[in-house]
């Protein structure tokens, strides 16, 4: 995996930077880090952050400071599908504890771990703004809501099938 944006990603990079006035390109840092994370395998190795720093003409430390502040950036490798299960108040009173325990059992991993096959990572997160659809989790860019044990099973199968289809 080369740590440089391809043409398509470069076009997107330029589009993101164009939103901000000249000389304020640092403002694009958060969106560009999202782009980098999506482009480089779901996480941000140091080389990726250094690359972003060079593109935006800022010091690498400015990127590290930001990347470590926000919870959506992964600074360690993660599985292909990251189950980010909400555990805050409204989800908790709607039964998120049971869902978390069930996912742990089904995937045989603890929060923060990745399955041996590199498919799934389980992450416990704080409120994702879907309290009316609790319990819920985020997988990639989409929300999976009103979770039940059956739904969790179906979701796991769905992602397994996706991988099979890709291969």
């Amino acid at each position: 995996m080369s740590l440089e944006f391809n043409n398509e990603q470069m076009t997107e990079f330029n589009r993101l930077v164009a939103h901000y006035p000249e000389g304020k390109q640092k403002s694009a840092l958060l969106p560009v880090l999202h782009l980098a994370q999506d482009s480089f395998g779901g996480w941000l190795p140091t080389e990726a952050m250094d690359y972003v720093a060079s593109l935006l003409q800022i010091q690498p430390i400015e990127v590290y400071e930001v990347a470590t502040f926000y919870s959506m950036y992964n600074l360690k490798p993660v599985g292909k599908f990251v189950f980010e299960v909400c555990q805050t108040g409204p989800c908790m009173i709607s039964g998120s504890d049971n869902i978390i325990a069930y996912i742990q059992k089904q995937l045989a991993i603890k929060p923060g771990e990745t399955t041996k096959d590199g498919m799934f990572t389980l992450k416990l997160v704080e409120c994702l703004g879907a309290c009316g659809y609790a319990p819920m989790m985020q997988v990639g860019k989409i929300y999976r809501e009103h979770l039940t044990k059956e739904k969790v099973d179906a979701i796991i199968v769905e992602y397994r099938m996706q991988i099979v289809a890709l291969n």
Binding site: H19, K24, L33, I58, Y70
Partner: peptide, 27 residues
Amino acid sequence: IHVHRGAGAYICGEETALIESLEGKRG
């Protein structure tokens, strides 16, 4: 109108933290 995505930080709902974040800094 420009859409700027945050990256996971409740504190950025506070208006000056939001501005810092919009400037590409820690919230």
